[in-house]
Design a protein around this nucleic acid. Structure first.
Lengths: 103, 103
DNA sequence: CCTGAATGCAACTGAAGGGTTGCATGTGTG
DNA sequence: CACACATGCAACCCTTCAGTTGCATTCAGG
C-alpha cells in the first residue's frame, strides 16, 4: 500500500517546498514560471520539484517546450488516512494502559 | 487551529525519529530505556525527543527519577485531518480545470 | 531560419542537523 | 549514607541539503 511515509514527510518538512507545493495546488506551472514568482533560483526550484515528485506529491507533464508540474492531492489523502490510522492505534493503547493503571 | 504543519513534517521526516515515535506509541519509556533498545546514544535520543515534543507529537512526565515520554496520537489525527482537507481542495481544483479545458 | 526562452548538468558554498563523547549534577533505593 | 543510575549541558565532527552560478543544449514560433 502507501509506500514508506518518511520520504513524504521529509519532502513536506521544508517550508519552501511546502509553499511551492501549495502554489502548485492552486494551478499547475513550469519551473521557470515558479522561478519568477519565488525569491529563489530556478535550479533550486527544480531540485525541490524533484524531491516532491519522488515523494509522489507532484507529477510533471511536457507541454510544448515547457514541463508543467501539478500537485497531487490524492497522495496527500493517502498519507492522511495512514496517519489517522496510526494515531488512533496509539490513543487506544494509551487508553488501555490508563484503564489498567487506574482500574 | 492546528499550529504550523511544517515542524510536524520536519519531525516525522527522519527515519530514526519515526521509529522512536512508533516505539513510544507501543508504550511510554524514558530516554535511557530507549537508549538501551536503539543503536544510538542517549544524547541522540534526547535530541530527537526534543524535536518530537516541540512538534506536539510527544509529551513527557516525571516519574520518580526518570522522565517518561509518550506518543500523542491526537496530534497525528489533527495533522491527518488538515492533510485530507488540503488534498481535497487540490483535487477539486484540478477537476475544475480539467472540466474547463475539455468541456 | 534564427533567436529567445526553457530545460539540463555540474561544481561549489554555507548552514543545518544527526550523532558522538565527556563531564557535571541530581536523586532514588538498597 | 553511599552509590548507581538518570538526566542536563556543551563542544565537536561529518554528512546532508538548500541554494547559487555558469554553461551547454534544445526547441517553439515569429
Amino acid at each position: 500500500m502507501s509506500q514508506a511515509l518518511a520520504p513524504v514527510f521529509a519532502a513536506l518538512g521544508d517550508d519552501t517546498r511546502w509553499a511551492l507545493l501549495a502554489r502548485l495546488g492552486e494551478a499547475p506551472a513550469s519551473a521557470s514560471a515558479l522561478a519568477r514568482e519565488f525569491p529563489i533560483s530556478r535550479q533550486a526550484i527544480v531540485k525541490h520539484l524533484d524531491v516532491l515528485r519522488a515523494a509522489g506529491l507532484v507529477d510533471s507533464e511536457q507541454h510544448g517546450r515547457e514541463l508543467v508540474h501539478r500537485a497531487l492531492g490524492g497522495r496527500l489523502s493517502d498519507v492522511a488516512r495512514e496517519l489517522e490510522r496510526v494515531g488512533q492505534v496509539w490513543e487506544a493503547r494509551l487508553a488501555r494502559i490508563k484503564r489498567l493503571a487506574e482500574g
